[in-house]
Amino acid sequence: MVRRITSSPLTVLGLVIVLIILITAAFAPVIATHSPTEVDLVSKLEAPSAEHYFGTDEVGRDIFSRIVYGTRISLRIGLLVVAISFPIGTILGAIAGYIGGRVDQVIMRITDIFLSFPGIILAMSIAAALGPSIENVMLALAATWWPWYTRIVRSSVLSIKHSEYIEANRALGANPFRILFKEIVPNAMAPATIQASLDLGFVILAAAGLSFIGLGAQPPSPEWGAMLSNSREILREAWWAATFPGLAILLTVLGFNLLGDGLNDLLDPKQR
């Protein structure tokens, strides 16, 4: 298993990035060099230096420390949104695929409706309706994300349901419960799990976007999207204020993406 992971350099890179993110989040107070929110007007708009690795913003806050603390916020958003939407989506998908008929029709029509909005637009309007806050952005993202899992799980359940090894189990006298949970679910979960690990990154990206337009984290929160939004005011004076938070988002999304792709190969039993 270990050898299989290390045989793909990109997966290793993804793993390393994700580990760095996790460590940063866990030890933020140790890693950060300054307070993430403390205003220091004397050293405002300073360029990156040994004192302020990533420079300071218009009120002298240390951007490096803000990014370090921001890791916690982003990670929490990613994990919670996936933790809410994944079970809802997969359970509905399993029900739709396994029971079929009317139930399937109803569930799939509902997912169609949710998926007929470009994701960020629906999340935007729900978050706007709920009012700007991080919690509401998480709710809004969870509400728009679950149909993807429903689709994935349903289609894999459908393809597995009609496979001969399920029929073999019916011929052996296995009851529907055993067939669903011992034969179908373990096989159907793999693609959704891979998607979930990719989504950790995409959720963070979407949440940063919503914060960027003023819906998510509110100042002075060191959320990356909100920091970028703020950096627009000082773009001319402080390129660093716009550069580093975006780099943090990019690396995070990239890390989860690479890890997800690696997981894809790993969860395929044909390569075990």
């Binding site: 970028l228 716009a242 975006g246 988002i249 990019l250 999304v253």
Partner: peptide
């Protein structure tokens, strides 16, 4: 993986 709004900035 790139945040489009960041690339824009």
């Amino acid at each position: 993986a790139m945040p489009a709004f960041w690339l824009g900035l």
